[in-house]
Design a protein around this nucleic acid. Sequence first.
DNA 1: ATGTCTGTTTCCTA
DNA 2: GTAGGAAACAGACA
Length: 276
Amino acid sequence: MPELPDVEGFRRTAEKAAHRVVRGVDVRDAQVVLNSGPADFGEALRGRRFAEPHRHGKVLQIPTENPPADSSPGGSSVDGSSADGMPSLLVHFGMTGALLWCEPNEPPHAHDRVVFRFDGGELRYRDMRKLKGVRIAREPAEAAEVLDELGPDAAAASRAEFAARLTRTRRQVKTALTDQAVLAGLGNLTADEVLWRAGIAPHRQTTELTRDELDALHRRMRSTLREASRAGLVPNRPSWLSGHRADKRCPRCSERLSQRRMSGRTTIWCPVCQPD
DNA sequence: ATGTCTGTTTCCTA
DNA sequence: GTAGGAAACAGACA
């Protein structure tokens, strides 16, 4: 599932836990804890509060903050401790990961790999295939190591930044769009969707795109991500290309869609709306 | 049963 | 620098 819009949905889920104290961490499958042992992982988080979650591309970062200096009722104090210097939780959802907010007594799901318990609810990292998972960054520099590998967030990249990053390489535009080091957040579905909306064939070389085409691509990308993020997934609507991966007819002109594997992923486009 | 597919990423080879 | 394949994993599906 997880492309930028999905992770944006998970970010909103994580907001339910913001400013709550982590009462306990259950690592039900140590394999998804990427950079520490299960005990250390839980120990790094227990007793701290989750702060406001951030998303960069497909990566979700949940910083922590210290518990409020004892109870300060009445004061809506966000307390003194900033999230600086505190450990962060980093989540990469791989291909099948998800984050769910559950009531305390909901029975566990077979694919619940890590459970973060709070008073009155819990956050669950659920993942069937365990291609990625969670990691702990003990200080901001450690989180930066992961995030610095990524290009600018696709939903936030400016037009100029977008064009500059994309044309830095001369690869096929679909491949460049899904390269997280070029631009962070687009996956197989959103890349196909954006290219279709912009009327650009996926195998075009980035360096042969005109300024107008780059601008169109950027504009479509922003609007597509905005709409999909609101839904928390790439919609399966009839007016979207992604809704036609099965019947393989262009939603705009009804032409038979073309299909090819590009860098290992199934790529779909309309030969009429996206000419060579 | 066996093979193929999958909304991800990384590593290797040509 | 770029493209393609395989692998990590756990299914669903024909």
